[in-house]
Simulated scan of single mutants.
Amino acid sequence: MELITIVIIAVTVLVSLKGFKDYAFFDRFKFQPIAITKGKQYDRLLSSGFLHVDMTHLFFNMLTLFFFANIVIAFCARMFDGHVPTGSVIFAIIYILSIIGGNLLSLFFQRGNSHYSAVGASGGVSGIVFAAIVIAPTALKIYGVVPGWLFAILYLGYSVYGMQKQLGNIGHEAHLGGAIVGMVAPLILAPELFQINMIYILGMLIPLAVLLVLAFKSRR
Rank of each mutant, 00 (worst) to 15 (best):
G203E: 10
E192V: 11
P186R: 07
L187D: 08
I199R: 15
L205A: 15
L208A: 01
M204Q: 12
V181T: 06
Q195T: 14
P207Q: 09
I180H: 00
A209K: 04
I206V: 15
G177V: 01
M183I: 12
L212Q: 03
G182Q: 10
K217E: 07
G182E: 03
F194A: 04
L208R: 04
V210F: 13
M204H: 00
I196F: 00
G182N: 09
L187Q: 03
P186A: 11
L187A: 08
L189E: 06
L208D: 02
I201R: 02
L189K: 02
L212K: 00
V184T: 07
I180E: 01
G203M: 10
F194G: 05
I201F: 10
I201E: 10
G182Y: 06
E192A: 14
I206N: 10
L187C: 05
L208C: 04
L208G: 05
I180T: 06
P207D: 04
P191Q: 10
L189H: 02
V181M: 09
L202R: 09
L205P: 01
I201P: 01
I180M: 15
G178W: 04
L214S: 01
A185T: 06
A185P: 01
I188H: 08
I196Y: 03
Y200D: 03
L212C: 12
G177M: 05
G178K: 09
G203I: 09
N197G: 03
I201Y: 09
F194V: 11
Q195N: 14
L202A: 14
F216M: 09
I196E: 13
G178F: 08
P186T: 10
V181E: 03
I206H: 06
L214Q: 09
A179S: 11
I206G: 07
I206Y: 04
F216N: 10
L205I: 06
I199K: 15
V184N: 03
P191D: 07
L214F: 09
Q195D: 09
V210L: 13
L205H: 00
A185I: 01
A190H: 12
L193T: 07
N197V: 09
G177S: 01
M198A: 14
I199V: 15
M183S: 07
V181N: 00
F194T: 07
G203F: 11
V213I: 15
M198V: 05
